[in-house]
Computed example of a mutant assay.
Amino acid sequence: MTLRFDIPEENFADMLVKAFTNRSFLTGFVITALVAAVAIVSFFWTPFDVTRLIIADKTQAPSPTHWFGTDHFGRDIFSMIMVGARNSIAVALVAVGIGIGVGVPLGALAAARGGVVDEAVMRLNDLVFAFPALLSAIMITAIFGPGALNAIIAIGIFNIPVFARVARAGALAIWPREFILAARAAGKGKTLITLEHVLPNIVTLLLVQGTIQFALGILA
């Protein structure tokens, strides 16, 4: 039996009501939903082809035809923003996925095993943190060449120690709990305890950190 600290349904509903009555939250939610909608629509339609150069229409001011104007190559800026939103969200999602997929198991392993394993994982994290994300991106680009894939890899590598530390800290707070001791007394191994009891109780921490890293991934 997995023990979890679930939020009661009525409390969760109250939390949603409070959130959507908060002006700052509502503003952020609307902006985020709008950007996501624009990114989704760009898969099927954009006002103009962003790869088409129309020099005669360069540097035009905003107008009913070109809502945000055109750049120095005559490309529609609003169409470019739509496609750019799609690419930024895709890069951030994959980069966060890399961080969660690699960092969380490392952090959970460090918390479960302790000792030499914990020390080795944390020192590897410190090594990655010693190189700023921008410097790592430049190094990867210099080695493998420019491209969205290399940018995703660079951001994803930087996310790994972030999620590893969050997962380790959350897991270390869970391991001394009574229900963990009961699970160990029942004969469960550390791997099974981590999967059934530890990870479900730190998922909220990971979700919060994931939203933060997602925003940073878009800015990167």
Results as ranks from 00 to 15, higher is better:
56 A>T: 13
25 F>V: 12
190 K>S: 15
160 I>R: 07
173 A>K: 09
202 I>R: 07
13 A>K: 10
192 L>G: 01
171 A>N: 10
112 A>P: 02
165 R>S: 10
28 G>H: 00
54 I>H: 11
119 E>P: 01
65 T>Q: 12
151 A>S: 15
38 V>C: 09
195 L>K: 14
31 I>F: 14
171 A>R: 10
82 M>R: 11
209 Q>H: 01
115 G>Y: 00
9 E>V: 13
14 D>L: 11
167 A>C: 06
124 L>K: 00
122 M>D: 10
210 G>H: 04
73 F>P: 02
15 M>Q: 10
136 S>C: 12
47 P>S: 10
153 I>T: 04
202 I>T: 08
143 I>K: 12
188 K>L: 15
13 A>E: 02
109 L>D: 00
146 P>R: 13
121 V>E: 04
62 P>K: 04
12 F>V: 03
160 I>C: 00
2 T>V: 14
18 K>V: 03
185 A>Y: 01
139 M>E: 05
147 G>A: 10
153 I>S: 00
164 A>H: 08
55 I>H: 03
70 T>P: 05
202 I>D: 01
129 F>A: 07
121 V>R: 08
153 I>P: 01
201 N>T: 04
149 L>V: 14
108 A>M: 15
74 G>E: 00
123 R>E: 03
193 I>Q: 06
93 L>C: 11
181 L>V: 11
121 V>W: 03
74 G>Q: 02
82 M>D: 08
116 V>K: 02
23 R>D: 10
130 A>D: 08
59 T>Q: 07
192 L>A: 15
199 L>F: 15
43 F>V: 13
138 I>P: 11
154 A>Y: 03
172 L>K: 10
132 P>F: 02
74 G>L: 01
61 A>G: 03
115 G>V: 02
82 M>A: 13
177 R>T: 13
143 I>L: 12
51 T>P: 00
193 I>D: 08
